[in-house]
Amino acid sequence: MSLDTVVEDIREEARARAEEIREEADAEAEEIIAEAEADADRIREQKLAEVERQIEREREQTLSSAKLEAKQERLGARRDVLEDVRADVEAAIADLDDDRRRELTETLLEATLAEFDDDADVVVATREADLDLLEELLEDRDAEVGDPVDCLGGVVGESDSSRVRVNNTFDSVLEDVWDDELKNLSERLFDQ
């Protein structure tokens, strides 16, 4: 064997070894790339799923907020309508014709005086516009007219001796009726 042959054999062996290393490196690189692509696909799928869950959560929150806001607006509108109805009722009470006002005031006065003992010193008050009516209604009764009160009408009776105060104003009657009938009124107005 000549030296050239040995050199050529060594070169051939080195080339073969280099080719083998290159093939191993290429295979390893392909494996690394495949793993990286698989990891990238898995990460992309996870991120997409996470984004979809976040979108769904935000959609649910937005929908829930919109429903709550709509409900609050509906309740506010209903409250406004009920306040308007109440204001209309109060205006109608304030504008009662004289005969009806006299009849209702007399009924409330009798109910008020019935709450006091016969020997009690009773002072009865009403709104300023009804003072003359009250004086007329008290002519044959053992009670006196007191200072006017801020109300729609009716009477307030008080006695220092019995420490009793009876509020039979139209306002207090309206308040009682309003509280008792608010649910029915709401159902009729809003067809619940």
Rank of each mutant, 00 (worst) to 15 (best):
G76S: 06
V122D: 03
L104G: 14
A125R: 13
R127P: 03
R101Y: 02
D132Y: 02
L113G: 11
E110T: 14
E110M: 14
V123T: 14
L82Y: 11
L68W: 00
E90V: 05
K67T: 05
V123M: 08
Q61P: 04
A111C: 10
V89P: 07
E135S: 13
A94S: 10
L96Y: 15
L113E: 03
A120F: 01
A66K: 11
L75H: 06
A129Q: 10
E115Y: 05
A94G: 09
K71H: 08
Q61I: 14
E106P: 05
A66T: 12
A125E: 07
T107V: 10
Q61R: 11
A120S: 06
L113N: 08
E83W: 10
D80I: 01
D97P: 06
S64W: 00
R74T: 11
E106F: 03
L63R: 13
L96P: 14
R127I: 09
A125D: 06
A92R: 11
A120H: 00
A94W: 01
D117K: 13
E106K: 13
E83K: 09
V89A: 03
V81N: 12
A70N: 07
A91H: 05
L68F: 09
V89R: 08
L109C: 04
T112M: 11
S65P: 02
V81Q: 04
R86K: 01
A129T: 08
D98K: 02
A129C: 06
V123G: 07
E60L: 12
F116C: 11
V124S: 00
A114F: 08
A114T: 10
S64H: 01
R78L: 10
E135Y: 14
L96M: 13
A125S: 15
A111G: 15
R78S: 15
E73K: 00
V89L: 10
L68C: 06
A120D: 03
D95T: 15
A120K: 00
A77G: 07
R102L: 04
D117M: 09
L75C: 04
D88L: 15
V89C: 07
R74Q: 07
E83I: 13
E83P: 05
E115G: 10
V89W: 06
G76V: 02
E69L: 01
L75P: 07
D118M: 13
Q61G: 10
R78P: 14
D132F: 04
T62S: 14
L113Q: 04
E128T: 06
A92Q: 12
T126I: 03
D132H: 09
L104S: 12
E60D: 09
A66F: 07
D88E: 13
D84P: 08
S65W: 04
K67C: 02
V81Y: 09
L131R: 08
T62N: 09
E60T: 05
G76P: 09
D132Q: 07
L113V: 03
D118V: 15
S65D: 12
A114D: 11
R102M: 03
T107I: 05
L63G: 06
A77K: 12
A66Y: 13
Q72A: 12
V124A: 07
T107M: 06
L63M: 09
Q61D: 10
L82G: 08
D121V: 13
V122I: 04
